[in-house]
């Protein structure tokens, strides 16, 4: 049997990028890092008790008293097991990665919905991005950006972006055809169509995509501890490598709490938009 040297080809391709586009990656690194740093500085600046109160109020307003109280208790548990600072690191990375994934993903989804050709090209790429084991993204990320939170963020963006792209596309395509026809017949420009009709009607679906993207970034941010991203993932990883069952468990619990709080709050945003439409 002749072995197909697929791996070698890919390596050669990565080397090629590395050799020829280094300035581009450096610039990108600078930009992304500054976003992460700003979010991190801001979240670290807020005292722990204030953040808990703010999150609780947000959850209460969006969903109800129950979610407000549960969020407060959950976050307080993280504080009381002394993982607050790690949690903030993780949260900052999740926010930055999600932010960038949305900035790229939503317009891409809209473009896909408007042009069948784009959909045909992008869909298989999204399949690829989602099914490739997440760890694999870590390697080229490290090659381009070194160790630390930057490659973690890039790997996270790639891994977490597909749902929001898919669901934005789906949401816009699901807007009933006669409603689009009606908007056209009254003389909407394509921008007016998008802003006044398509995006508002697709919003619940887009928000479901945002929720998915946040959850996927959280899971990836934890994994990217393997390439030196700090935060809760680091705690879990050191627990695993040093067989510290207790530390690992605490880190794991903190991730679970963070996940539940983020998930419930973003879902509540989604159902509120839904409810407004049919109320």
């Amino acid at each position: 049997m002749i072995r197909l040297p697929l791996g070698e080809y890919f390596e050669a391709f990565i080397d090629l990028l590395k050799d020829n586009f280094d300035p581009f990656f450096k610039g990108m690194k600078k930009g992304v890092l500054s976003i992460i740093d700003h979010i991190e500085d801001f979240l670290h600046f807020i005292p722990w008790w204030l953040l808990i109160i703010l999150v609780a109020i947000l959850a209460w307003r969006l969903s109800g008293k129950k979610l407000g109280i549960l969020s407060a208790i959950g976050l307080y548990i993280i504080y009381s097991i002394d993982l607050w600072s790690e949690m903030i690191d993780t949260l900052s990375l999740v926010f930055s990665a999600t932010f960038l994934a949305l900035v790229i993903g939503i317009p891409l989804g809209i473009w896909m919905a408007k042009k069948d050709m784009v959909e045909r090209i992008v869909k298989p790429i999204l399949d690829f991005m989602q099914t490739m084991p997440a760890f694999v993204y870590l390697i080229p990320s490290v090659i381009f950006f070194g160790l630390g939170k930057m490659p973690g963020a890039i790997a996270t963006i790639i891994f977490a972006m597909p749902p929001v792209v898919r669901l934005t596309n789906l949401g816009i395509r699901q807007v009933p055809e006669d409603v689009v026809e009606a908007a056209t017949s009254f003389g909407s420009t394509s921008g007016q169509m998008l802003l006044k009709v398509q995006i508002p009607l697709a919003m619940p679906t887009i928000l479901a995509g945002v929720n998915q993207t946040i959850m996927l970034s959280l899971s990836m941010v934890v994994i990217s501890a393997m390439i030196g991203a700090r935060g809760l993932g680091e705690v879990v990883l050191s627990g695993v490598t040093q067989m510290q069952i207790g530390d690992g468990f605490e880190g794991g619990i903190a991730v679970v709490i963070l996940a539940i709080v983020l998930d419930r709050i973003t879902q509540a945003v989604g159902t509120r938009t839904n409810a407004k439409k049919t109320s």
Partner: peptide, 27 residues
């Protein structure tokens, strides 16, 4: 030219008045 549709084709996220005003809004 203005059009009326078989299945109404109203904008579900807008109030009745906002629906009716749509043609003027885009102008």
């Amino acid at each position: 030219v203005a059009m009326v549709f078989q299945h109404f084709a109203l904008f579900p996220h807008r109030t009745v008045a906002e629906n009716v005003a749509y043609g003027l809004e885009v102008q």
